[in-house]
Design a protein around this nucleic acid. Structure first.
Lengths: 199, 199
DNA sequence: TGTCAACTTGACTTGCAGTACAGTGATTTT
DNA sequence: AAAATCACTGTACTGCAAGTCAAGTTGACA
């Protein structure tokens, strides 16, 4: 059996995906983990600490996913543009294969509940998004060197666009109850990049 | 003086933008509106009714904004592609001129708190997003007739992309504490549309 | 054998949502 | 002029969830 802390995080993640962080009570998390409320507070000082651990875990997972995906893409094609296009395709497929939606929500829900979460969580979030910006910006710089873009373009904004369409897509997906929106949005972004850089 | 109901909505909107819906108590809304808690419940049955009214008002505002913006753009240029490009530029400028951020958050925060809000609110949200999809899809259809797209493209996904980058941009803006992200994202989308359709 | 980590139990405080209802002063209707 | 309605105030209550605290239990390992 996994350790209780991990169990709590798994249960919380599922509950948060289903109904949001606020709507998930400690009581029900404890019940699902088959421990008492007191037991919960033994592992996490308060709900804030739980949120923080969840976000930390999510960011680590996401970073690893991006590492793997774009490393594999680069193996398949050494050209920076084609590697990115392959990576985005893989990302779209991965997004579509997530049955219960994507935990990206957690970042968004934290972004919209400033007061609820402490500064530490906000900084965590900020660093993660800046990290993704830098990651994709670096790829775009490499591409732009080899393939001059058809139009002048802000590479930071382009880097942000990956996060932006994923997060935006997740919101639409949830609000519409229609799966596949983030993947479709990523594919749009892919088309944009193709038009912008490819001959 | 504005009527109390409107005052309550204004105060709530500001508070929600600052710290989220959940973190805003009825007590503090009532205090800011200079009425008693009882007075609040006279106007709104519960917090759900307040959220619903806020979202209704937000959607109406957003629809009116889109109506105005793209009508003006069409006045400036009768060509469907150029009108849309002008409209998106105007939208980016409008987004940048909103000092306290954009209430788009409200849609997103509702999307992430399913349980908190009743089905009516969820349907409202859904209809709004479908409306925006249809609105932009119609524009893209008109454009595609005159300017065959360089690549096959899913017009629904393209229509969604407007909502997607605005909402996604708002999340990044909030999480980063960096203004101007949604406008920058809209400008990226504009570049994409230009590359996709223009000669 | 003792000690430490990982709990449990239970009692408590605080804060917020929501209910219920009695009353009040201003305005509107009849 | 009387009656009704509107837009509240005020108070008192229930119920739930978060979080605190103190004291006790249980199994593993040194």
């Amino acid at each position: 059996m996994a350790d209780t802390r991990t169990t709590i995080l798994d249960i919380t993640e599922a509950a948060v995906l289903e109904k949001g962080f606020e709507a998930t009570s400690i009581e029900e998390i404890a019940a699902a983990a088959e421990i008492s409320r007191g037991g919960f507070f033994y592992h996490f000082k308060d709900k804030n600490a739980l949120a923080r651990a969840l976000i930390e875990r999510y960011i680590a997972t996401e970073d690893r996913l991006y590492d793997d995906l774009f490393a594999r893409a680069r193996e398949l094609n050494d050209d920076p543009l084609h590697a990115l296009l392959i990576g985005l395709k893989l990302l779209a497929e991965t997004l579509d294969d997530m049955p219960n939606g994507h935990p990206g929500c957690i970042i968004a829900s934290a972004a919209y509940q400033d007061r609820l979460f402490d500064r530490g969580i906000r900084d965590l979030n900020r660093q993660a998004i800046l990290g993704w910006r830098a990651r994709f910006r670096a790829m775009f710089e490499q591409i732009a060197e080899k393939y001059p873009p058809k139009t002048k373009v802000d590479l930071d904004a382009l880097g942000d666009m990956v996060s932006s369409v994923v997060e935006g897509g997740l919101i639409l997906e949830r609000a519409l109850g229609e799966p596949g929106v983030p993947a479709a949005q990523i594919m749009q972004l892919r088309t944009y990049i193709k038009l912008l850089f490819a001959d």
